[in-house]
Design a binder for these strands. Structure first.
Length: 647
DNA sequence: GGCTCTTCAAGTTC
DNA sequence: CGAACTTGAAGAGC
C-alpha cells in the first residue's frame, strides 16, 4: 500500500478516535476497468445490469481499461536452504543412531545389483547428467560404507517430459449434437498466457514468473472446466475431476516446470506458498507424483545408483502433528491392498527405501504439509513448509499387526515460518493465544461480519489518521444505465445451466462463481444479482454482497506505511473485499446520472493463491498518457511484476 | 545399452 | 461413501 499515510502516534491505545485512525485515501488515480459510457452498452448485453463487480484482469472488452486489482506482494527472500551440515548423518550429538531397516529390504531381483533399479544399476537415463558438487551431503569423510561417495544426479526427466499424447483432440458432444472443443479451449489458454512456445529450459527448471503463470493458467482452466461441467447441457461429462483434467491438458502440452528432479528448493516456489490441489504440486515440480506421498529420484554413486527422497506430502492435518511444528513423524507407503483394503507388512522399497537412504545421506527433503482448512475444496490446503532432514526411522506394528515404517523428520533451522504460522493464526482465532501488536481488535466497529484488526508490531505508531471505515461504495455521481434493469426470478437462488436466468445470460450463460464462491473466470466485468432479483441473499451470484469472508488485518509495514493482509488463506479467484469509499469524478469520468437500479461496484479478487499474512497488493493499471509525468509515485509493492510507479 | 510399451502403485476429489 | 481418475517408476521385450 501507499507510503506516507499520516500517523497519530500520540494517541494512547484504547483512547483512539476511530474517525481519525486511518488515512487510507481513496484510490484517487485508480485506472480500473470502468467501462466508458458508450462502451458500457456494447460490452456484453444491451440490458443494464442489476449489480456489477469489477474482477481481476482481462481479456478486456472494448471500451474497458485493464486493471489488476491484486497482485501478491512477495518480498520474502527464499532461504537458500541446504544448510550443509557436517556429516554426522544429520543427527545431533544426543540423538541415537537409527534402527537399521535393512533387514526389511525387499530382495533385489539380481543379487549383485544395487537396490532400486536392478536392471539399470549403472545407467544414467535421459539426455544428460548433472553432477552435484560435494555440498556437504557426502559423508565419505566419516564413513566408508556404501553411502560414502559423491552424488551424481541423473537427469531422468528431460527426455521424457515432452511426450505428446496421441489420438484425436477430445471433443464432447452436447445435447444439440455439437462437439465441445476442449483442444481449442486449451489452445486459447496457452495463447493468452503465452505458453504456446514453452521452451525446454523453463520446463526443466523454473522461476517465479513461470511457476506463477502455470498456476494461473491451471486454475483458470480448472475453473472454466468446472463451470462447463456444471452447465452439463453445454459440455456433458467434460470433467468430473476438473483439477485432474486441467492438469492433464497442460501436461500433455508440455506446460509444466521444474520437471527435472532436484534435492532442495524448487526455483520459483517459496516457503509458505500454498496449493489447493495435488496436481498443482506436480505442475510446478514441487512434488511430482500425482498420488504418492513420497517423491524420490535416483542418484548415482560411482558405479551404482540408489534412490533418495526429494519431497514428501504430509497429509495429517493439525491434530496429528503434535505440538512441535518442526517435527514430523511420517509413515511409509504401501501395506494396504488396493482392492479390498486388506493390510500387510510394508516393504522397504520405492519411497520407503528412498527415505531410508536419505536418512543415511542426510539430504534435504522438501516437506509439503496438508492442512485441514475450510477454504480448500475438500477442506485441505497444501503448504510448502521448506526443507527437513530425516533423523530417525523405525518399525511399528499397526492395529492389524502389520509392520509400518516410521520416519522422523526435523525442519532445517533458519527458514521462514510457514506451517508454524498457520498454527499461530489458529490460536489467535480460537483465543488460545493473543496476536501481538494489536491496536484495535476491530476497526470496522462491527460493520463487517468479521473483525478487521489494526496491528503494529513494527514500531510505536498507533495507526494512520483521518480514516473512517466505510463498508460499501459511495458515489459522487450515479451510474449511467441506458435501460431499466431486469432481475431474475430464481426463488431458490440462481442455478447453473438455467438458460432462462437473465443474470446468467449477462455472464455469457454461466454463473459467475463456483459453489464455493470462487470466481470462475478473470473477466473484467461480472454481473451479479441485485435489487430487482428474486433470488435470496445467499444466492451464489451475490458473492461480493455478502461481505468479507476472510480475517483481514491492517498492519504497519516496515517501509511503506500501512498495508492489508489476511489471516486466512485466499485461493485464486476468491473474493477478498469490495472497494469502499468515494469514487471521485476526476479519477474515473465514467459514472453518470441515472434513474435505474444499476450500480457499479469494484470488488477485489485474488489472482493467485495468497498464503496467510502475505501483504495484499494491487496493480493500479496502465497509466493514462496525459498523466504520464504528473503525480508519479514510486511503487514499493515488491511484486516481480511491479510497474515501478503508480499515479 | 537404448528404446518403447505395459503394468503397477500411490491417494485425492466430489 | 465409493467411483473415477492421474503420473511416473518398474519391468518386459525387442
Amino acid at each position: 500500500m501507499e507510503q506516507g499515510l499520516g500517523s497519530d502516534s500520540n494517541a494512547p491505545p484504547g483512547s483512539i478516535d476511530k474517525s481519525r485512525v486511518l488515512d487510507v485515501r481513496p484510490l484517487r488515480s485508480l485506472v480500473p476497468v470502468f467501462p466508458s459510457p458508450q462502451g458500457m452498452s456494447s460490452i456484453s448485453t444491451p440490458q443494464p445490469t442489476p449489480f456489477v463487480c469489477v474482477p481481476p484482469s482481462g481479456p478486456f472488452p472494448s471500451g474497458v481499461q485493464p486493471f489488476y486489482p491484486f497482485l501478491v506482494q512477495n518480498d520474502s527472500q527464499r532461504t537458500t536452504g541446504g544448510q550443509n551440515q557436517p556429516n554426522n548423518f544429520g543427527f545431533g550429538s544426543n540423538i541415537p543412531a537409527p534402527v537399521p531397516l535393512n533387514s526389511f529390504r525387499t530382495p533385489p531381483a539380481h543379487a549383485n545389483r544395487g537396490p532400486g533399479r536392478p536392471k539399470k544399476a549403472s545407467k544414467a537415463r535421459g539426455s544428460g547428467s548433472i553432477v552435484i558438487e560435494d555440498d556437504g551431503y557426502s559423508d565419505s569423510q566419516n564413513h566408508s560404507d556404501q553411502y560414502g561417495f559423491s552424488m551424481h544426479v541423473t537427469d531422468a526427466e528431460v527426455a521424457s517430459n515432452s511426450v505428446k499424447r496421441r489420438g484425436r483432440p477430445r471433443k464432447r458432444r452436447t445435447e444439440n449434437g455439437e462437439e465441445f472443443d476442449v483442444e481449442s479451449l486449451v489452445n486459447n489458454f496457452l495463447t493468452v498466457f503465452k505458453l504456446k512456445e514453452f521452451d525446454d529450459f523453463r520446463r526443466s527448471s523454473g522461476d517465479k514468473d513461470t511457476v506463477g503463470t502455470i498456476l494461473l493458467a491451471f486454475d483458470l482452466l480448472r475453473r472454466r472446466l468446472t463451470q462447463l461441467e456444471e452447465a452439463k447441457d453445454l459440455a456433458p461429462g467434460i470433467a468430473r475431476r476438473p483439477d485432474l483434467k486441467a492438469a492433464t491438458l497442460l501436461m500433455t502440452k508440455g506446460v509444466r516446470t521444474n520437471s527435472t528432479k532436484r534435492i532442495g528448493h524448487v526455483p520459483g516456489v517459496e516457503i509458505g506458498d500454498i496449493f489447493f490441489f495435488r496436481m498443482e504440486l506436480c505442475l510446478v515440480g514441487l512434488h511430482a507424483p500425482s498420488m504418492a506421498g513420497i517423491d524420490y529420484m535416483s542418484v548415482k554413486i560411482t558405479m551404482d545408483e540408489e534412490p533418495v527422497a526429494v519431497s514428501i506430502v504430509s497429509s495429517g492435518g493439525y491434530d496429528d502433528d503434535g505440538d512441535d511444528c518442526d517435527v514430523i513423524i511420517y509413515s511409509g507407503q504401501g501395506g494396504v491392498q488396493r482392492r479390498d483394503g486388506q493390510m500387510f507388512d510394508q516393504k522397504l522399497e520405492r519411497g520407503n527405501l528412498a527415505l531410508e537412504k536419505s536418512l543415511h545421506r542426510a539430504n534435504d527433503v522438501r516437506v509439503v504439509r496438508g492442512i485441514k482448512d475450510i477454504a480448500g475444496s475438500n477442506g485441505k490446503i497444501y503448504v510448502y513448509d521448506g526443507l527437513y532432514k530425516i533423523q530417525e526411522s523405525w518399525v511399528e506394528k499397526n492395529k492389524s499387526g502389520c509392520n509400518v515404517f516410521k520416519y522422523k523428520l526435523v525442519r532445517v533451522p533458519g527458514q521462514p515460518e510457514a506451517f508454524s504460522l498457520w498454527k499461530s493464526i489458529q490460536q489467535w482465532k480460537d483465543g488460545t493465544a493473543t496476536r501481538t501488536g494489536i491496536i484495535l481488535p476491530d476497526l470496522t466497529s462491527g460493520a463487517e461480519s468479521l473483525p478487521v484488526a489494526l496491528v503494529n508490531d513494527v514500531d510505536g505508531e498507533k495507526g494512520p489518521a483521518h480514516f473512517t471505515y466505510v463498508p460499501s461504495l459511495k458515489y459522487s455521481q450515479p451510474f449511467s444505465a441506458p435501460k431499466p434493469s431486469t432481475g431474475c426470478h430464481c426463488l431458490g437462488g440462481c442455478q447453473p445451466g438455467d438458460t432462462h436466468c437473465p443474470c446468467s445470460q449477462r455472464n455469457d450463460g454461466f454463473l459467475p462463481y463456483s459453489s464455493l464462491g470462487v470466481l470462475f473466470t478473470n473477466k473484467s466485468l461480472i454481473h451479479e444479482c441485485g435489487l430487482t432479483c428474486a433470488c435470496p441473499p445467499n444466492c451464489r451470484s451475490r458473492m461480493s454482497q455478502a461481505g468479507i469472508k476472510v480475517r483481514l488485518e491492517v498492519f504497519k509495514t516496515k517501509n511503506r506505511g500501512w498495508g492489508l493482509r489476511s489471516w486466512d488463506p485466499i485461493r485464486a479467484g476468491g473474493f477478498i473485499c469490495e472497494y469502499a469509499g468515494d469514487i471521485i469524478k476526476a479519477s474515473t469520468a465514467v459514472l453518470r446520472e441515472s434513474n435505474s437500479d444499476v450500480f457499479l461496484h469494484i470488488a477485489f479478487f485474488a489472482i493467485r493463491h495468497i498464503p496467510p499474512m502475505q501483504e495484499l497488493t494491487y496493480d493500479y493499471g496502465i497509466v493514462p498518457p496525459e498523466k504520464a509525468d504528473k503525480g508519479k509515485k514510486k511503487c514499493l509493492c515488491g511484486s516481480v511484476k511491479c510497474r515501478g510507479f503508480f499515479y
